[in-house]
């Protein structure tokens, strides 16, 4: 049985918050990819990814973060990551994601970060 994964979307003004829940691997990564693509198709490039309920991530999931960030920043937006549990955060850090992405504790922190750094240089 595959392990479940879902993306819940909410708005904070012109910022879209995508809350991930479950297991993000090579099987479920296309769901996340589609969620980000849908935001960009709707002209929304200011994204917060809330990983509070994300139990697991493999490189296929990390690849989705990588694959869109250049386009998001070219469109004047950014993707900020928040709420990761220690196990998941460790994987991001092993690969050096903290050098490229803003990683915050909570959704309000991540939303506030947009007023300080609307788009970050890689």
């Amino acid at each position: 049985m595959p392990q479940p994964f879902s993306v819940q979307r909410t708005d904070e003004g012109d910022i879209s918050v995508l809350a991930l829940e479950g297991f993000l691997d090579a099987h479920t990564a296309p769901i996340f990819e589609q969620a980000i693509q849908s935001e960009l198709d709707n002209g929304r490039a200011r994204l917060v990814v809330d990983g509070q309920k994300l139990s697991y991530i493999s490189s296929a999931g990390l690849g989705v973060f990588m694959g869109f960030i250049e386009q998001i920043r070219q469109e004047g937006g950014d993707l900020k990551i928040c709420g990761l549990n220690q196990r998941v955060r460790q994987i991001f850090e092993i690969l050096g994601f903290q050098a490229i992405y803003d990683m915050l504790d909570t959704v309000p922190d991540a939303v506030r970060r947009f007023s300080e750094v609307p788009t970050r240089e890689a």
Binding site: S59, M66, G67, E70, I100
Partner: peptide, 22 residues
């Protein structure tokens, strides 16, 4: 480097690195 992979919009290329790190 991660910076080069992201600049190229690549979604792959991390699997072997993850294995070697873990």
């Amino acid at each position: 480097s991660l910076a080069r992979l992201t600049a190229a919009g690549r979604m792959g290329g991390l699997g072997v690195r993850v294995m070697r790190a873990l």
